[in-house]
Amino acid sequence: MSEMKKIKNLKEFSTSADRFEGANLLCPGCAHSIIVREILNATNDDLVLGASTGCLEVCTAVYPYTSWDASWIHIGFENSSTAVAGAESMYNALKTKGRLKQPDRNPKFVAFGGDGASYDIGFQWISGCMERNHNMMYVVLDNEVYANTGGQRSSSTPIGGSNTTSPAGTHSYGEKHNKKDMMGIMAAHNIPYTAQVAPNKWKDMVKKIQKGFATEGAVFINAVSPCTTEWKFDPKDTMALTDLSTDSLVFPLYEVIDGKEWNITYRPKNVVPVEEYLAAQGRFKHLFKDQYKHMIKEWQERVDENWAYLNRREEARV
């Protein structure tokens, strides 16, 4: 059971038996469940899952229902990472003592968190788990906002986004601070594997997740999750928006091995201008007024700069 599940193409992948159930209460068109499904279906092994408070948690565990067909726990906003790390430590202790009831099974430990729970509230806990190098995976469902509580800004919210606590108006272009470079911070922990994924590139994503499961030690995954409610676009356009985010290089797809080896895993054939990515979302609508038009140019420059930086890191191998 512990050998890697073989997924050559989408037809083969579609024979997977889902372990995440429908009739959860996520919004129509939410990318969270697409990401969760791609992760859970990437393995046939048993799963020990945790979720921080956030959209995913409140929508999949509404009493008296659960949408999870695997061991799943919710404790608090900040500690899904440590809860799963604790389960992993207990598993290792029982294994060492020879007290596992089914020693041939090879469970995978995965913790989920939104960007609020990961970039802000649970930051210290995640950092601890990564530093102690538990054999677990932490997945951020990065929708750049506290979507569950009504759209407050988080430290993942990019410049210029209009949110309930950083609204755009005649005197403000919205969020003033740029997005925290969580990938860089996690790579700086020198953990075995860090990767940024997007649900539209399912093959890239499944490959990275399987690589993460095969890795001994801590794995950090940052998944872009367009939020139809807070990014303000039509639910049917979720995948189109994910395409825009990866093809405009706003969310470049790359991986970092041992904090040293940076590999860009997806280079779009036709790079889309950032303007198209911004224009597709209601939260950036005000940037197209004359008053704030300079922001679009700054956006493009920032994205180009980041892409050049990633390319330099890939080349330098440091």
Binding site: G29, S33, P235, K236, T238
Partner: peptide, 29 residues
């Protein structure tokens, strides 16, 4: 099947055989 957020596309033996109308929220993806 892969992009359905609500596990509502029923695929069996590599074939798409129908839609689970109890779980479909009508997002249109």
């Amino acid at each position: 099947w892969i992009y359905c957020p609500d596990i509502s596309i029923i695929a069996r033996d590599k074939k798409m055989i129908g839609i689970d109308m109890d779980h479909c929220k009508g997002c249109g993806i």
